[in-house]
């Protein structure tokens, strides 16, 4: 046990794998045990146990709140079945959420990159950094009603909330990365004949590009959260909309199935961007 608090511990790949997987196994095992106990308590033969719990002042938990893993799986499979019009509910919901997320994040990135890169120029930096810093502190969800009033109830506000929420953060992170570029490299490029714009492109952008990928990946969670929250408020399809609908129907298996799908999508996106960033081997040193 004491070894767990040593900084110089060397781990084999097997130990690393075990330590990585163990928390997942423990979490799911705990969930399985808990759900089976709760469901057993709902059976007539568990009457004595329920009475004993009541005597202790503990209410018998509602089994609908903790669905069995098999129920979650069934719910997942049923959401993959096409309806009478041939629409697959899960696919349509995931595509709608992904589309809003991707468009919002792409527009944010497209504007944040030049905004951040141009902070290399002092006037540009002094003009943009304070206002971006201020907007970065504003919680985007607070602006949601304003976005609805200005942009209507269609797709635009759901994309706009992602832009408002993540653009300042990405731009500020790029501005911070720009500051890390050594001045000597900029002077060196200028002695090699680079113009100001070539310095931005050749020296700054290309060298910090892997870190920009990491900066974008760091905003995934926030952007994903904004889209889902917006869908819970105003939408006719999407992961957030479906979870909100399932909540009204107390359909816990569907909620958990969608939560797992949303989590897996984020996990995959994070892996993809991590792999993309690491593919620039010179940046990993």
């Amino acid at each position: 046990m004491l070894n767990a608090f040593r900084t110089d511990t060397k781990l084999s790949s097997r130990e690393t794998l075990v330590l990585n997987v163990l928390p997942f196994i423990l979490f799911f095992a705990a969930y399985f045990v808990l759900t089976y106990v709760v469901h057993w308590l709902a059976l007539p033969e568990a009457n004595q146990a329920v009475q004993w719990l009541s005597a202790q002042g503990i209410d018998s938990p509602n089994p609908r709140l903790l669905p069995l893993p098999s129920d979650i799986w069934q719910s997942f499979l049923s959401s993959l079945k096409p309806d009478s019009a041939g629409h697959v509910q899960l696919t349509e919901d995931v595509c709608a959420t992904l589309r809003r997320f991707t468009i919002g994040l792409s527009i944010s990135t497209l504007f944040a990159i030049p905004l951040g890169l141009f902070t290399l120029f002092p006037k540009w930096r002094e003009f943009w950094v304070p206002i971006l810093g201020w907007f970065d502190k504003v919680q985007a969800l607070l602006l949601w009603p304003i976005l609805l009033l200005f942009l209507g109830l269609d797709e635009a506000p759901k994309i706009a909330i992602v832009i408002v929420g993540v653009l300042p953060g990405i731009a500020l992170e790029i501005a911070r990365l720009v500051e890390l570029v050594k001045k000597d490299q900029i002077y060196k490029a200028q002695t090699l004949g680079a113009t100001e714009m070539e310095v931005v492109w050749h020296v700054v952008y290309r060298q910090i590009f892997p870190l920009i990928i990491a900066a974008i990946a760091a905003t995934f969670k926030a952007a994903w959260g904004y889209v889902i929250a917006a869908e819970m408020s105003v939408a006719s399809c999407g992961i957030g909309y479906r979870i909100f609908l399932a909540k009204r129907l107390m359909d816990m298996p569907t909620i958990l199935a969608y939560v797992i799908v949303a989590m897996l999508i984020m996990f995959a996106a994070d892996l993809l961007f991590g792999w993309w960033r690491r593919s620039y081997r010179w940046a990993n040193q």
Binding site: D184, Y187, K188, H202, R206, Q207, Y280, A283
Partner: peptide
């Protein structure tokens, strides 16, 4: 001017 600074100024990429 050509410049060779104290810290390595090669473009890392």
């Amino acid at each position: 001017c050509g410049l060779v600074p104290q810290n390595y100024s090669l473009f890392t990429n």
